[in-house]
Design a protein around this nucleic acid. Structure first.
Lengths: 150, 150
DNA sequence: CCAGATATGATGCTATTGCAACTAATTGGA
DNA sequence: TCCAATTAGTTGCAATAGCATCATATCTGG
């Protein structure tokens, strides 16, 4: 990778940056439309699903799991709480922690959100076979690892 | 792809969505830091580079090329103009059009921006060989095509 | 036991982005 | 010719997201 010709070759090829950017923005629009009936925005669904997968969680744990700033997590949780999908409960052992649980409404909406996300994935991954998709995920993981220091 | 077992198999695998999201956000932070000395934000550099590549351009053409909303383009161009990197010139043949040109300062900063983008790409694509990277770009193009209707 | 250090989370500010609605300029049909 | 439709761009608003800072609660060393 430090050889001049290798760098030159990469210099002349297209970059993934613009594609990542465009895909992110268009997926956000798509997911917003899918989840609008449930009053869940594109900035909240990942927190809802993460809590559903591993309940209960603190905001700090959520931030680390999803690789987002803790203030982004705080705002997303505040919205999910206002919509009645998530409930906070102070940890009796340590009042600094607020454990996050799904409410009944939250438990009811999670499968519908999952279906919406599956629809988006099926639509966006059309024309990619399973082997290619596995490779795609692996490459995305590599890039993300390079960005976060693994 | 329409076979039930194929769908079932895709349902159980990881989705690219969260990776796209995390990569986008982290790349934005990285690029912002790289371009801060030039007072260019993560929301402006792609417009600058697109103008450099194909001068002159209208805002409409930029929006379609970069797949962004025309209002996003208008705001990015306003910032680049305020920083003295881009100049607007009304098309004498049709006053609705504003042709966009680089200024002298713009022409000077473009190579430095390109170098910063190359550094980001090299860092984020570490550990991916050329064949894999080509495949990666192809898959990203496919996903983006699925989102925009090709 | 108490003061400082540390951890969790909240608040204010800023940047990016898209949608709705608007203005201004051009074009085309009655 | 003139008015309606189209096109380019702007403005206001809202959502997402990160940084700096602050408040509160817990823990640790003297």
């Amino acid at each position: 990778m430090s050889e001049p010709w290798a760098l030159k070759s990469k210099d002349s090829s297209e970059s993934h940056g613009p594609y990542i950017s465009a895909i992110y923005r268009h997926m956000q629009v798509l997911i917003s439309a899918e989840l609008a009936p449930h009053r869940i925005g594109s900035g909240q669904y990942m927190f809802l699903m993460a809590i559903a997968q591993q309940e209960p969680l603190t905001q700090k744990a959520l931030s680390e799991k999803l690789l987002v700033d803790k203030t982004t997590t705080a705002k997303a949780i505040a919205k999910l709480e206002a919509e009645g999908y998530v409930r906070r409960e102070a940890d009796p052992a340590d009042q600094r922690f607020q454990l996050l649980y799904l409410t009944e409404a939250g438990r009811e909406v999670v499968p519908q959100v999952q279906e919406a996300l599956n629809r988006v994935r099926t639509k966006t991954a059309a024309g990619i076979d399973e082997a290619e998709y596995a490779m795609f995920i692996r490459l995305l993981k590599t890039v993300l690892g390079n960005l976060t220091g693994l």
